[in-house]
Design a protein around this nucleic acid. Structure first.
Lengths: 335, 335
DNA sequence: CTGAAAGCGCTTACAG
DNA sequence: CTGAAAGCGCTTACAG
């Protein structure tokens, strides 16, 4: 690889001058500039990124820690982040955490050592762990985590409102015994959706029955198993609000195997609106999160924070509204 | 951030000695070592990656260029690559190319400027473009591209064999008029699967009917549209081998809308075995590619190449065998 | 076993 | 408008 020294030698200019034409900083005689440009071209020179980083402390790279790229919720997030970062010439390093806080910490540390300019974390992170990350003063944005009481940038949807939306819809469709398969206790999103579920029951004066609440881990099998438990109840539910689409798919499978017709015998609504919802049969009703927009906004916040002076404690938060998407798994004829 | 200088000062040792204990290179007195270690801990020192890269020319980072992470085929590849890279302390920067050769080139150049130690490219790349990339002498591995006549490392499955496998299966199930929805003309995988399709027909002495061949772009809509065209034929097919699962899903949708029962009235088999195949109803028969293993092996090859001396023209190729997975869309009772 | 010095490829004042 | 010099934070011979 050619260096600036080579370019300087070939063009007859000094290294400083070469630097000036490359960075378009300071005055350079037009003819000198042309000679330098010609030399750059001839040598196929391109600047050494590591050397620049050493000086500037910046790498034009951001880190992305997400639970698992093979979970259908995350590719759209990752894509949005990469698209948005690319526009500002940032690259993104991605890491999978499997929602294991140890792995999150490990990746965070490793990214910090690589001097990434900022980090985006998606997934279930408990509040006390978030504090651990903000101590480092590295620009940080959390996706889909309720950070209400923590000074950190974040982007998420209003999960409580979404949970209510889903449950309201089931009630309006005439379902009367409504169960909920919630996500992990660690997850603030799962917690908020669960709260929305209770809000709706309360508003409609429906008794809250704890036996109708099952806990899953946001993966398909756990939805299947939770549904099995619900169907084993003596007084089983006629509808269930499932805290994410993946588990809802599992629940649908369990219902089908029990020969229960969806939506007439049991209604099911999910959460997220991942692409899968449209290809299953019947198509899954769900609460839509603006997944791609979540990723865009998170990246915008991160880049804005990177732009600010360090030590400046600005942070940004946005809570987006989710949307009810009625498809086939809940459209029972009204009685 | 603390530097080695700070550590040296605090521990009373020289910078050279500090470097020795950090890199465990050369002899260091046990007591000196302990003092240095203590200082490192106290200052929460971690080495500056950019400075190291400047010296070594290595970044412990690899680039991954894939068409689109939101295409369900690629998350598993990306995950496998990240998992494997992580084991050797490599990070991966990922970029989406949308199968646009201009974007591939752009990303390739940008990754090269960031001094990544190697690059993995997945997707449809024409042979003449591959030459462009190997000129740079940067360690490179291609995934799912037929590179038979090109000196470059690659990992793929035997697509021609897979295409034959799929078509043989349809014939064995008693289907007699078999169509093929192929992938783009640019794609060597699509071409090879198409060849396998023809191999099978030939072996079974079935006439090749060009009207039964439609071209898609590997995306769901194109499968839908291609199927529509096939169904509009006066003498329409009773089965179709679709060149990937996503298009097969589109084809299934078109068949359903035409009120054709799958698999009795029309059989459909896909290719890839993405997770979606198991959640659709009926479940999609397909040809399984070992997607995760593809990613592992590609990364292993890349890291091996990085380990070798530059200029050393070793390259590695592996062709894996695909597997027939019979599910519900092709299991017609034999006549 | 340890330290001083050179150098990786750049940018940034500073002087002219 | 241009060049010499210092320095970013490290590693690597080299000398002791």
């Amino acid at each position: 690889m050619a260096t600036m020294k080579d370019v300087a030698r070939l063009s007859g200019a000094s290294i400083s001058t070469v630097s000036r034409v490359i960075n378009k900083s300071g005055y350079v005689n037009k003819e000198t500039e042309d000679r330098v440009l010609a030399a750059i071209k001839k040598l196929n020179y391109s600047p050494n990124h590591a050397a620049r980083s050493l000086l500037s402390g910046e790498t034009q790279t951001i880190g992305l820690i997400l639970p698992d790229i093979t979970n259908p919720f995350f590719p759209a997030i990752a894509r949005a982040i990469e698209d948005t970062a690319q526009k500002d010439k940032y690259n993104v390093i991605f890491c999978n955490s499997d929602n294991d806080i140890l792995k999150v910490s490990k990746h965070f540390k490793s990214l910090k050592e690589k001097s990434v300019d900022g980090i985006i974390i998606a997934g279930e992170i408990k509040q006390n762990h978030i504090h651990e990350f903000i101590e480092d003063n590295l620009p940080l944005v959390m996706i889909d985590v309720n950070t209400d009481s923590i000074p950190v940038s974040s982007v998420r949807t209003d999960n409580r409102f979404g949970g209510k939306l889903a449950t309201d819809h089931l009630i309006e469709q005439g379902y009367t015994r409504i169960a909920h398969i919630r996500g992990p206790l660690d997850s603030s999103s799962a917690e908020d959706r669960y709260k929305g579920f209770k809000d709706s029951l309360e508003q409609h004066h429906i008794n809250y029955d704890p036996t109708l609440i099952q806990i899953g881990d946001f993966r398909i099998e756990s939805g299947y198993n939770a549904m099995l438990r619900l169907l084993a109840l003596s007084d089983r539910p006629d509808a269930v609000f499932v805290s994410n689409d993946l588990m809802a798919l599992g629940a649908m499978e369990a219902a089908s195997e029990a020969n229960l017709h969806i939506p007439t015998q049991v209604g099911i609504i999910g959460y997220d609106d991942i692409p899968l919802t449209k290809v299953v049969n019947p198509k899954l009703s769900t609460i839509q999160q603006p997944i791609y927009e979540l990723g865009i906004r998170a990246t915008e916040f991160l880049l804005k924070t990177i732009g600010k002076n360090k030590g400046d404690n600005h942070y940004f938060t946005e809570v987006m509204k989710p949307l009810l998407i009625v498809r086939e798994t809940t459209t029972r004829e009204k009685r």
